[in-house]
């Protein structure tokens, strides 16, 4: 059976663009209220939906990044809140990377692999400390950020 994949590409672009807009609005809500259940749930569902569509179309880097973002949001949901401004910045970076990928699909550009540093950071357990060389401050420029590792007990 052959599905009309050009049709699904169009739907993917429409729905992904809407979902990315919803993620953006939800992140702005989280900037004001880091424990917003509605915003956390929205980002989780939108990332999940983009993942499923991208996987169906073979857009593997999009599927991988949205999967990592979804997993991260599952951790945020379990924690009940975004941990701090740094974690919020990481989520914004995930959004920006997804937006760039969807734009590449829209322009029929080849999809580059996901930045391994971003994947690694998204996959890091919430609360784990580490040195981050280029974390993005919310609303600011990339800068060097150093976080404290938890003291051994």
């Amino acid at each position: 059976m052959g599905l009309d994949m050009a049709k699904y590409r169009r739907i993917f672009l429409e729905e992904s663009t809407e979902h990315l807009g919803e993620i953006s609005r939800a992140l702005l809500d989280l900037e004001k209220e880091m424990a917003s259940v509605a915003a956390i749930d929205t980002i989780f569902r939108m990332a999940h939906s983009i993942k499923s569509m991208a996987a169906s179309l073979g857009y593997d880097p999009v599927a991988e990044l949205s999967h990592r973002l979804e997993d991260r949001m599952e951790g945020v949901r379990a924690a009940g809140r975004v941990r701090d401004v740094e974690e919020l910045g990481l989520l914004f970076r995930g959004l920006e990377a997804l937006e760039a990928m969807v734009a590449a699909v829209s322009e029929d550009q080849p999809l580059a692999p996901v930045d391994p540093g971003l994947i690694e950071e998204l996959g890091r357990p919430a609360g784990a400390g580490a040195e981050r060389d280029t974390a993005m401050a919310v609303g600011g420029e990339p800068k060097k950020v150093r976080t404290q590792s938890p003291s051994p007990r």
Binding site: M1, L3, D4, K7, Y8, I11, F12, E15, R45, S49, S52, M53, S56
Partner: peptide, 17 residues
């Protein structure tokens, strides 16, 4: 399904059957 993409895909798979 909340995604139109997935609803259409399922429809397109099962209706010919």
């Amino acid at each position: 399904d909340d995604a139109s993409f997935m609803r259409q895909m399922i429809r397109e798979i099962i209706e010919p059957e």
